[in-house]
Design a protein around this nucleic acid. Sequence first.
RNA 1: GCCGCGUUGGUCAAGAGGUUAAGACGCCUCCCUUUCACGGAGGAAUCACGGGUUCGAGUCCCGUACGUGGUACCA
Length: 509
Amino acid sequence: MMDKKVRVRFAPSPTGGLHLGGVRTVLFNYLFAKHFGGDFILRIEDTDQTRFVEGAEDYIFECLKWCGLTPDESPLHGGPYAPYRQSERKEIYRQYAEQLLKDGHAYYAFDTPEELDAKRKEIPNFQYNHQHRLALRNSVSLTETETAKLLEKNVPYVIRIKMPDNEEVRFTDMIRGEVNFHSSQTDDKVLLKADGMPTYHLAVVVDDYLMKITHAFRGEEWLPSAPVHILLWKYLGWINDMPKWAHLPLILKPDGNGKLSKRDGDRLGFPVFAMNWTDPKTGDPDSHREIKGFKELGFLPEAFLNLLAVLGWNDGTEQEIYSLDEMIEKFSIERVHHAGAKFDYEKAKWFNHEWIKRLPVTSYQLRVKKIFEEKGLVITDDEKFVKVLELVKDRCTLLTDFYEQSVFFFVAPSTIDIDSIKPKWNENKQMFFVELIRAYELLQQWQHDDLENTFKEIAAAHQLKSGELMLPLRIMLVGGKFGPGVFDIASVIGKDETVKRIEYTLGLL
RNA sequence: GCCGCGUUGGUCAAGAGGUUAAGACGCCUCCCUUUCACGGAGGAAUCACGGGUUCGAGUCCCGUACGUGGUACCA
């Protein structure tokens, strides 16, 4: 059991759309926190002013809202540890950087980016570390007075961590167990940049401490820099408050090599973002195009979360379909897989199909209605609409599929697959349909069974098997060989429309 | 290159020394349905490789290969 209240955070930088991996990181954080009755904090890591993208932060909130993963604290929702935007906490970080400086765990470095680039070119495998530190321009290699002079002259500087040259850094990862790094393998990371902003390394430690984060879950790409963070926790004197770590496996491209990226979506024809995203940056002609999201493509948030959850996690049973509440109940970080998982869009669609089938149509009725409206079909009769949705839901994988699966309930088919009727058409069948129309017009009741019985009686009278007449009827009503039961369709569209459609096709034959 | 992490069918994966190595997606066959789906029944397909340890290894150890991440005043 936990002695402190569980507090986790998701800390995106507002640089673009929220992709699958990001949402899954949110999900796992959220599930863990809620499982233990804890809090989920959203912090915006906007310390890189060169990468700031207009609208990205709002977009992140929109995505979380759609998913139903509401933060307990965030720049939007407020909270006791505000501000939650790192750019607004700038002064806080400096104070801790100075503490590190004072304690000898950090130093000033005056090298310009250009100088460092040159070094990297000149020296193979160059690292700003104990090996090269003394040959560079910093407060370790320079005398105190030289350093003071540079500082006084306002020469731009960064503050770097002074990595020990021979120390074993080990920690326990909740997913991977014991992990070891040698301190000499990591360079002296910049903590505070020349513009006074902290880098991720400093900011994440300071904020996690100040915000009383108990568990830090993040993508596996952070594993190599974990030793820097751990050392920082130690140097700042907070080691006993350090959160427990877990590094989540990556989501990989379906077809091969590497981390899933937004370009893979276009290339392979599936979404990688939660919702549509358009990069507002101009200049790059490629970046202005809208990138499709799961939401707009017709995914249900329930399905989206579900498919993400089981990409790298399972509860050890055969269960695959989980509601958010079930996930919260059953989630455990220890059962998260160690290896990266290739994303499979076919399986993703299967999840959506399952959720469409098991959720009441009324829960997504409004969204489907909007999709119809976008295609120019306005729904006025909600009762009929729900009936239709119920009839066709089994054959819809995406919400957008509802349109073509059910337009014919609302407007007569624009084309009739007449070629599928013609070859087996004859006088007798013609007579049958003429009589069917007459009989249907006289019908008092317009229910499925009445329609079917009448149909069969007349077929028998004409010595025709009803089976060979059902396909023509279907084509007359929907235009082709698809859709739910013919009498279901007829009963929903009503007598006038049914008769009209039969007559229309008869005229074509 | 160096460092880290990983490796069970095409994909997601169960498995914690002894199993006929689950299940799901996808694929194939059949049944249901005189449409298309849904549903049902079957099928093909797997422990990366090499060494150990052990009576016995997918499971433990070592090595190799492969994959992946990091190696920025980006996160």
